[in-house]
């Protein structure tokens, strides 16, 4: 063990850096879904589509800015603006027109509404943005590289990957936790998450809370895509692949727990990075292995509370 550590210690350090930045990306993918699930009790399959649309919108906005010859630094706030736009434009529409109409129906119907929406959005996105990969990497180029020492060598990392992604993820985590605990609107959301009926009885407008939460969730999904857009190439099918990962995170985390999503994202991020370094063949199944292991030990998920047995 000692031998192995001294040989691979430096590599472990690199793997940790990679793992952290990947964890940040995973957290951003899943946090919105987790929030929505907590309040609406709907596993939103269209979350993956919102992620993709957020990414496309951010790339388009950034390309538009640079085509107008506007300063490059604008591309950074553009990521957030694009995500917010997608959330505000699509979130309320989806919630009002579709989800509200199946409220109180069987869970499977609610689930399938989002599945149907996913199918529609998938083709719609293709009609708008075509099939050729879309990318705008101005933000990454803008911030440049950081050299990380590695023995006698140095390894370049992009500042975007090392600081911006984890930074925004951390801000989102802290901001969301603060919002949910310290603000009235946040507490209303928590109340509805815990017990919808009781919250209603206390005079909380559950419909309004639902609308607010879904819009926030949609914006967070879009933000996840927007943050990935400077690095990743957006192609048809991104949504389908994203959704599986975020499902795994939500189930592992426990229902509607923001901290749970963060811890799970860390587990998956680090697990995947270590897999790439030491056992590459396992990389693809890491999220599922983690999920199955966690649920074996804690059937209600990492941060979930066991449901009281109703009679």
């Amino acid at each position: 063990m000692g031998d192995w550590l001294s040989q691979n210690g430096l590599l472990l350090g690199l793997a940790t850096l990679d793992g952290l930045s990947y964890a940040a990306a995973v957290f951003m993918v899943a946090v919105g879904l987790n929030l929505v699930f907590g309040v609406l009790r709907i596993l939103n399959i269209a979350h993956g589509s919102l992620y993709a649309i957020g990414g496309y919108a951010a790339a388009s906005l950034s390309l538009f800015l640079s085509s107008r010859g506007l300063p490059e630094w604008l591309s950074l706030p553009a990521l957030v603006v694009a995500a917010a736009l997608v959330g505000v434009l699509l979130g309320p529409v989806i919630e009002r027109l579709l989800l509200r109409r199946v409220e109180g129906q069987e869970p499977v119907l609610q689930l399938l509404v989002t599945f149907a929406l996913f199918m529609v959005l998938e083709d719609l996105q293709k009609l708008v943005w075509g099939v050729q990969p879309v990318v705008s990497d101005t933000p990454v180029r803008l911030l440049g590289n950081v050299e990380i020492p590695f023995g006698a060598d140095t390894i370049p990392f992009t500042a975007y990957q090392l600081f911006v992604l984890p930074g925004i993820a951390l801000l989102t985590l802290v901001g969301l936790a603060w919002f949910l605990r310290r603000t009235l609107a946040g507490r209303m959301i928590v109340a509805v998450t815990e017990d919808r009926e009781a919250a209603r009885a206390m005079g909380i407008d559950a419909a309004k809370v639902t609308l607010l939460t879904f819009t926030a969730g949609a914006a967070l999904a879009a933000l996840g895509g927007a943050l990935a857009s400077p690095v990743a190439s957006l192609v048809p099918g991104v949504g389908a692949q994203t959704i599986v990962l975020s499902f795994a995170v939500v189930a592992t985390a426990g229902l509607g727990r923001v901290e749970g999503a963060a811890v799970t994202a860390l587990l998956i991020g680090l697990g995947r990075a270590f897999a790439v370094y030491f056992e590459p063949e396992l990389e693809v199944v890491v999220p599922y292995i983690i999920m199955v292991l966690v649920l074996l030990i804690r059937p209600q998920g990492l941060f979930g509370t066991p449901e009281t047995r109703r009679i």
Binding site: A15, D18, Y22, A25, F150, I155, Q161, S233
Partner: peptide
């Protein structure tokens, strides 16, 4: 869409040649 871990590993290993038959959005990224 994210090859950063693979790239770090290759940066550390410094192989003479990197082969990739990847295509499409994956290759772009």
């Amino acid at each position: 869409t994210d090859f950063s871990t693979e790239i770090t590993r290759l940066l550390a290993l410094r192989p003479d040649v990197v082969l990739s038959t990847t295509w499409g959005g994956d290759l772009d990224a």
